[in-house]
């Protein structure tokens, strides 16, 4: 399968990428690792007429200690997130889950920023950023702004990013001593999660759901139940509340509503054992 024709420009800096976005408007798409965008283009579900390649902006590939948080450059590849000593020590949920995205070849190319900006509800990392209460840093013509993860995912493949903005950094708060878990349920090793659950616990809990609606979802009913002292099993019984899971070849919506309760319980138990 071959994508429809497009013009290709390569940005040598964030400013250059923003200028290209301003010039071409919503006809253009940013290309990072390409592992969300190119498959869509090959299926002709996306047909941008201009691709702005930001894949060479290596100064946006980093993992840095920001004091109370860890900052990850948007162009950091999944493999580099997976093996980062700083993330393994301070945000192990993210490092661990990055190692479960797709397969090794995908992790050599795909980037955390690409995955988050794509906003696929079936992707692993957006839910992790949501569970951790991360912050997304975007740059646009008006400068830089910070967006809370809870306000970032607007609809199916839609985010708070404006067409002339670019995601530059993902900040994850450190939660020393927190227990964590990522439960990914699928039938073939490399597949998307049929349902996934990201959980982090120390005092308060953050629980986010994969593939249970049109965006990655925060399991607020579960979090509230835990806050009022419910056991993991009792809290997990609320996991499907407020969700609208898809119905597809991998499972019916009812099956997902059941599965999510099982996976939330497992995630809370594992996080509890790790904390």
């Amino acid at each position: 399968m071959i994508p429809s024709a497009f013009d290709y420009v390569r940005a040598a800096s964030v400013d250059e990428a923003l200028a290209q976005l301003a010039e071409h408007g919503d006809e253009a798409k940013l290309l990072a690792g390409g592992h969300s965008l190119l498959p869509l283009m090959k299926l002709r579900l996306a047909a941008p007429t201009v691709l702005i390649d930001i894949g060479r902006l290596r100064d946006l590939s980093y993992v840095r200690d920001g004091g109370n948080h860890v900052a990850v450059g948007a162009l950091t590849r999944h493999r580099d997130v997976e093996v980062s000593d700083l993330l393994r020590a301070e945000v192990p949920l993210l490092a661990h889950t990055a190692g479960l995205v797709g397969d090794p070849q995908v992790r050599h190319r795909g980037t955390i920023g690409g995955s988050v900006a794509h906003g696929d509800p079936a992707s692993d990392l957006p839910a992790v950023v949501l569970a951790l209460g991360g912050t997304l840093v975007a740059r646009g013509p008006g400068g830089e702004r910070e967006i809370a993860a809870g306000e970032f995912f607007h609809g199916f493949l839609e985010t708070a990013l404006a067409p002339d903005e670019m995601l530059t950094e993902i900040r994850l708060p450190k939660r020393p001593g927190a227990g964590w878990s990522y439960q990914k349920f699928n039938r073939r090793a490399q597949d998307w999660a049929i349902v996934g659950v990201a959980a982090v616990r120390n005092g308060g809990a953050g629980v986010a759901l994969v593939n249970m609606g049109s965006t990655p979802l925060r399991a607020t009913a579960v979090e509230q139940a835990l806050a009022s002292g419910a056991s993991p099993a009792d809290a997990a019984a609320h996991a499907a509340e407020g969700t609208e899971p898809p119905d597809d070849l991998n499972g019916s919506a009812d099956y997902r509503r059941h599965l999510v309760q099982v996976l939330v319980r497992r995630a809370l138990e594992e996080a509890g054992a790790r904390g």
Partner: peptide, 27 residues
């Protein structure tokens, strides 16, 4: 498969395995 699944098209790019059906030559 031509859909980033099967790995038949795997080559090394700068020493790392990639699925060459999902990388543009310009990249």
């Amino acid at each position: 498969c031509d859909t980033t699944s099967c790995g038949a098209c795997t080559v090394l790019l700068d020493g790392e395995s990639v699925k060459s059906c999902t990388v543009l030559a310009v990249q």
